[in-house]
Design a protein around this nucleic acid. Structure first.
Lengths: 242, 242
DNA sequence: ATATCGGTTTGATATATGTCAAAATCCGTG
DNA sequence: CACGGATTTTGACATATATCAAACCGATAT
């Protein structure tokens, strides 16, 4: 079993699932850790295509991804979707639902995955007792807001090449933060899903991958990616059209 | 002085600025209200173009907009910007900064405006004491995440007409929630700013306004908007290309 | 090993929106 | 009230990306 070493941006510990070993825990003492342990009882398993929750579902819990990965998506009237994120091990999802007590997006497994359920009312009660946990929870929500800002920038003012460069560099960083290779990895999502995330058609995604390969920035064989020149990929991201 | 009547989505009360009268307060008893009153001491004034905070500024406080309006924007390397939102009376901004203790965007006044400062550590302390306030704070942050999802959908998969329709309908709702006319209002932002928000060039924004007018959906004279047919505008929003 | 099916790549063409430029309009200031 | 700079509108044209279509590839099942 793969075992991430260190997270650049640690999330909530999830001790009952032994996630405490995986996610660098918040700065808590032993007693506090124990209480956090008691928070999450159940671990659920999913295979590709399974829904963790659906838009409209009643809100009960946040979820810590223990293994595997998910995508979140919002649907428009006419059925077409926007992928709002790809989440991987150690990340927390479900925060959209707090505001209205209903989930406002779907969360779908992209591979065999496990999540720890974190009942939100218990989490709130505990974070009233433990200020460090409270602040941590706020940081996690704030981080989601910052992430969203970045995606708005991407969707609102970058061209296709910049978007894909940003996507690859983001994956690279997140793999690195989990002790995996920042330059060689397998994509868990299809060209269509990448397109729905980046606001592009799948053909444009495919073509842009090919351009990057022709330019020697990456080597790509379907879902196997190797980044050959991180610096130039970064330069591509920074080189806006305007 | 204009006096909003009721907010569909109440935000934090800001009693020291008499915002308690404006924003429907959280469900707090008198003692709790008093404590919340003591939270915010200072009210600051701004004129168009003034910065409430800048990207990189140290995080101290959230801000409740007491009068006027602001825009928030993120900047890319090459200097071009994405407007991430237009905020009006009763809304809370600054939550981006919690995650890293630094603001990750600029907040700029769009007209003469006043804000109440809400020192975040005090807000956290108080929300440990008052569960209703705690939940309210979480809802406000979650609502921001949901709002961002909507913008991603807009930027990632809508055409220019849908984007502008969504923009106008959103303004309409928010004015209505403040007891103002949902169909007749003044824009506070330039075509350029609307464009930076919607991921369009200002010329495209202008042309799309003209199309809407030609089609009898709205009447527009520069910054004066009248929505003539809310239903068809809504239909325009729902009529995706895909 | 072969067939099948979904996913991917590539090509040809269409189109929405961007870009550049000029005219029109608005608004604050002298 | 007129001036001047900023903003907005409109037009002509360019281009990035979407669309449509076909070939290709890789995994899974027969």
């Amino acid at each position: 079993m793969q075992r991430p070493v260190l997270y650049a941006r640690p999330n909530l510990a999830c001790s009952s699932c032994n996630l405490a070993e995986l996610c660098l825990p918040v700065d808590l003492n032993a007693a506090e850790m124990r209480k956090l342990d008691e928070l999450s009882h159940s671990k659920r398993s999913f295979t590709r295509g399974d829904y963790l929750y659906r838009c409209g579902d009643k809100f009960q819990s946040l979820y810590a991804i223990h293994s595997g990965s998910f995508k979140t998506q919002v649907l428009h009237e006419d059925g077409h979707e926007q992928v709002t994120g790809f989440q991987m091990v150690g990340e927390i999802i479900g925060m959209d639902a707090i505001s209205s007590d209903k989930h406002t997006c779907d969360a779908v497994a992209m591979e065999n995955s496990e999540v720890c359920e974190l009942p939100f009312s218990k989490l709130e009660a505990l974070s009233r007792e433990i200020p460090n946990l409270q602040r941590h929870l706020h940081k996690i929500m704030s981080r989601e807001i910052v992430r969203d800002q970045g995606i708005m920038l991407l969707l609102g003012s970058m061209r296709a090449e910049q978007r894909l460069a940003a996507f690859l560099l983001n994956l690279s960083q997140r793999f690195a933060a989990r002790g995996l290779s920042p330059t060689k990895f397998q994509l868990r999502m299809s060209r269509h899903e990448i397109g729905r995330y980046l606001g592009l058609q799948l053909e444009t995604v495919s073509r842009t991958f090919s351009h990057f390969q022709d330019d020697g920035l990456i080597s790509v064989r379907v879902r196997s990616i190797e980044i050959l020149d991180l610096q130039r990929l970064q330069a591509c991201l920074n080189n806006s059209r305007y």
